[in-house]
Every structure is written in structure tokens, then in C-alpha cells.
Amino acid sequence: MRSAPHLHLAVWALLLLHFAAFVPEARAQQEIDDESEFSYDSRSENGPENWGKIKEEWVTCATGRVQSPIDLSDRHAAQAPNLGYLHHSYRPAEASIVNRGHDITVTFQRDAGSLWINGTAYHLRQVHWHSPSEHHLNGRQYSLELHMVHLSAENKAAVIGRLYKIGRRDHFLHELEPYLRRMAGMKEKEEKVGVVDPWEARGDGEAYYRYMGSLTTPACDEGVIWTVIKRVATVSTHQLKLLTDAVHDGFEMNARPLQKLNGRYISFFCPHDDHERYYAAADH
């Protein structure tokens, strides 16, 4: 990985302040409502390449300059030790699971805790999954991606992304398996699942990428602070099938294609003890 210029952290801070002040609010409610007008089929008239033409309010999907997802390449990432460890205070909370047609979402009914970024609290609202992963790591796409969607008091969005490869079962999904089976093919079906601990969704891994982007479903609103965990988790083939079987036909693969970087900074935070391991991996 290339060393960051000394000015990088200062530039990143200025960019973050710029987006927070001037970019239209990322309406994360768009991550909650079902949008039956769009699809992920590149051959379809309402596929990803045409999202910006479907509705006037979705034009940012086509014209936006800081769209998500992107390829998180170590060649374009700069070390940012001053970002520090992720500061969050998650707590178990009552939740429900919803089949939105294009994905499965766990929505928290009560306070499930917050993620703090630059002194601002972003409150956890919901988590959902995309298969295959939307973000790539060094050109590689993974089997699944979890999004933890947070909102500030000003309705600004911050999302934590976690990638999965096929392997051992994921404990968070394991707890939800009975509900996933009942969700299959049931559009807008919602069930209460009792108390859910979001810390289990967050999982392990302290190293992460940070960049400014957008929501990955229409209206593709920009101004989203993205945090993607470096360590790839595992999910079983059975669990992945439960998620894809539950959504509607045509949404089994619900990942938006990669978007252009357009000169954006990608910052990378890595705990000091892990530097050698991650950099060695990046060189191979």
C-alpha cells in the first residue's frame, strides 16, 4: 500500500466537512421503503444503468459524482491512523424483520445504539443484505454484504459494510434463520423477532476503509459516510440460500454494479499491531 501524503488527513477532514455541509441529505428512508420500480437486471429497462431515468428524483443515480459501491483498492487507499478505532455503543433492542422484495431487512424498533464519527452520533436504524457483495476488495467480489444503516439527528447517513465469503455459518444470521424461512416469497411481510443484538452483526475486525459515497438503491442520494470492514467474515451456503430464496424473483442477485471513483480519497485505518500483516497481504 502506498504511504499517504502528509496533507491527506487534512484534505479528508475538509472533504468530510464539505459534504456534511453542502451535499443534500442522504435520505436513508430510501433504504427502508420497497422500490418495486427498479431491478438489478442489466438487460432490463429498469436495470441499474437506467435508474436515473426512471424518476426525476432518481436522477442522481446517473449524474452523481460520488456514487457507491466502489472497488476498495489498496493502490488507491491512503493510511489514515488519525481516524482511530470505530467508536460505537450498540445495545440489544426490539426488532422486526421485513421482506422488502428486493432485500431482507432487520429494523430496530427501539434505540439500538450509535456510531460516532467526528463527534456526531449516527443512530443505528436497520441492517440488510446484498448478494453478491456490492463493494469489492482489490478487485474481488464476495458472496454477501451486510449494511448497517445509521442516521444522525440531521438525517445524514453513515453505513458500515461487512463482506462475507462462503465458510462457517454466521452467528447473527443463524439466530434469524427461522424467520428467513417464513419470509420466502412474502412481499412486505413483517415479523417481530424480539430482542436483537446488533453487536453480533458488527462482528470482528478493527481495520477499515472510509470514503464518501451514496446509497446503493434509488434515489442513490449522496453524502453517505461509508465504513467498510477489512476483515472478511464467513457465511454458510445454507444461510446464503435462505437470503436469496426469500426475496422476489429477479432479486436473487441484488448488488449494484461498481461506480467510478472520480478522484475520491479512500482512507484506510489499521491498528498498529496489524500493519505488517495487512501490508504484506497487499503486496501479494
Rank of each mutant, 00 (worst) to 15 (best):
H8D: 10
R182D: 10
E31C: 08
V127H: 02
S236D: 00
Q79S: 13
E200H: 01
L137P: 00
I54P: 05
D71F: 08
D274Y: 05
Q29H: 12
T60M: 07
L86T: 11
I229C: 10
E200G: 00
Y85M: 06
S152A: 08
V23L: 04
S44Q: 04
Q109P: 00
H136R: 14
L86N: 05
Y208Q: 02
L215F: 01
Q126D: 13
W199Q: 12
D170T: 04
V232K: 00
R168S: 13
D283M: 09
G64S: 11
H135Y: 15
P198Y: 04
G213W: 01
A121S: 15
E175M: 10
P218F: 05
R182F: 03
L176Q: 10
L144R: 10
A201C: 01
P69W: 02
Y90F: 15
V193K: 00
K156V: 03
R169H: 09
Y209C: 03
H238P: 04
H174Q: 14
E57S: 11
L215E: 08
E57A: 11
L146Q: 13
L83T: 02
S73A: 14
G52H: 05
P271A: 13
L180K: 10
E31I: 00
G250L: 05
N46Y: 02
W226L: 12
H136A: 14
L243V: 06
W226Y: 14
S44Y: 00
R256S: 11
T217A: 09
E145A: 05
A201W: 02
V149P: 01
D221C: 12
R100P: 02
D274P: 01
A282I: 08
H147Q: 14
R91F: 03
K53L: 15
H76R: 14
Y209F: 15
E37V: 04
M1A: 09
W226I: 08
R91L: 15
I160H: 05
E276I: 04
G113I: 04
H87T: 14
N118F: 07
A62K: 15
